[in-house]
């Protein structure tokens, strides 16, 4: 809508999905969680089951925009808009979510890693519509943290980080996933960081080194709110704090 108000977009047709039924379901099952495209931020915020079933998602959503926007903003809208500084695309990518789209050729599932292509550009075809996002099941003992810094509450993040991992019986990290947003032209996974630390204990020195490894290859965004140097340093700080918090937080 702001794009229309600024006369930057002048679509011939706009379709409101308000009356399309069945897209606002939150399904929580053994296999994981499915969020319908019309699920709003307030629905996630108020669904106490999600705080257990997908705590990282629940925490990330608290950072999205403001009250009035959370009353209207949806899962499908955020995924399709694909803002590089938005929280949900980052969660989708970090958690290896699948985006379910339907079109004239039927339904298909697109892995988040193949979905976000560039700022505001996705793998969605012009005749396709997002109907849901699927997240796999979350082990109860999983460690996680979500950190972002924005200029004011509700603003897009200058940088943000999402981290989760399981700890094995020896205290080593397994299934480590590290995501970042607001720093590049789309949300990113820090695969080098993950590779360097998977199977390791979260020792501060090793974590610091792995973070550097993961961020060094990133082409950092620079804009009027923050330059690339700052974003790089900020992301490293947020990641460090995210690992700390994930370790300190006792699993539910």
């Amino acid at each position: 809508m702001p794009m229309l108000a600024f006369r930057l977009a002048t679509p011939r047709v706009l379709v409101d999905l308000r009356r399309v039924s069945g897209l606002d379901r939150i399904h929580i099952g053994e296999q994981g969680v499915e969020l319908g495209a019309k699920v709003r931020w307030r629905d996630i915020e108020r669904d106490t089951r999600l705080a257990v079933a997908q705590p990282l998602l629940a925490e990330a959503v608290r950072h999205i925009a403001h009250y009035q926007i959370r009353n209207r903003g949806t899962v499908g809208g955020s995924l399709a808009h694909a803002d590089p500084a938005a929280e949900l695309p980052a969660i989708a990518l970090t958690c290896e979510a699948h985006i379910v789209a339907v079109g004239p050729r039927g339904e298909r599932e697109i892995p988040a890693a193949e979905f976000f292509l560039a700022p505001l550009v996705t793998a969605l075809e012009p005749d396709e519509l997002i109907v849901a996002m699927r997240l796999s099941a979350w082990p109860k003992a999983r460690r996680f943290s979500f950190k972002e810094l924005s200029r004011r509450l509700g603003d897009f993040a200058l940088a943000g980080a999402a981290v989760f991992f399981d700890l094995d019986e020896r205290g080593c990290m397994r299934a480590l996933h590290v995501g970042a947003f607001g720093v590049a032209d789309k949300p990113v996974r820090l695969l080098e960081t993950e590779a360097a630390l998977n199977g390791m204990r979260p020792e501060p020195a090793a974590v610091a080194e792995a973070i550097k490894l993961g961020t060094s290859g990133l082409e950092m965004r620079s804009d009027i709110h923050a330059d690339a140097d700052y974003r790089r340093a900020l992301l490293e700080t947020l990641l460090t704090r995210a690992f700390d918090e994930a370790m300190q937080r006792s699993p539910s």
């Binding site: 809508m1 702001p2 108000a5 706009l14 409101d16 307030r42 009250y67 009035q68 009353n71 209207r72």
Partner: peptide, 9 residues
């Protein structure tokens, strides 16, 4: 629900 009426047609 409180919503912004400038963002709604």
């Amino acid at each position: 629900l409180a919503v912004r009426s400038c963002l709604m047609l």
